[in-house]
Design a binder for these strands. Sequence first.
DNA 1: AAACATGACAACCGCTATTAT
DNA 2: CATAATAGCGGTTGTCATGTT
Length: 239
Amino acid sequence: MGKAPCCDKANVKKGPWSPEEDNTLRSYLETYGTGGNWITLPRKAGLKRCGKSCRLRWLNYLRPDIKLGGFTQEEDNIICDLYKTIGSRWSTIASKLPGRTDNDVKNHWNTRLKKKILLGAAGKNDVKFSGSSVLPCPGPNRNVGKNYLNNSSTTTISSYSMHDEQNPTDYQFGHLLGHMGVLDFSSTIASSSQNVSSFSSSSSSSSVLDHQKWYSDIEDDHGILLDFGFEASHDDVMN
DNA sequence: AAACATGACAACCGCTATTAT
DNA sequence: CATAATAGCGGTTGTCATGTT
């Protein structure tokens, strides 16, 4: 036997919360707390809302310690650093920012930070190669990348350009940032059009990498082949 | 001034992990 | 232990305000 049924979805209101609903929820929670059960809360409080909706409204907007308004540069830096490290773990990232919610951080990333990074200045271009990125998307058109680099163990990279039919998804974006981080790149990303992104190192000195190892790391770190490769002539990449 | 595009944010949906029965 | 409710999370969508043509 389980518990009592959840809210009656046919009878719950959806959409934006009215000030009256906010007041009702706020005063109920300030008086009685959640009672450890969000599902039964709206009925007790006299709200025609789903418990999930009440919980979200309280956590993201009504709770007293919430911090509303613009993010500081310091907060931006924390979000970017953590995103590079752990990806889209918004609740974890939000936990490092007092008063911020996961939804808030997620929205801020999606609407501002992502673009800010994408539109950032490209780095140095002393060595550059470009070609099709190979993205970890399922589907028939998946383009498996080819590593045309020769067998030389190391070369110098300060810029990597990626061209593809579509923008990288957050998943891909995060992993790429992550890998650049792993490889000690201080990466900036420029986007010159809807469909072209440019990944460039902004480090003052060029990085020496073992290409074959780099490729392997991408497989090994995550246990899957991200199909991230590049096509380039030897002339493009060799000093 | 109207139509359309874009940005920002609130809210919902679906999934997974946890917990209660 | 099995089952179902619940909490929590991340992705996505909806809505409204503002900017641009």
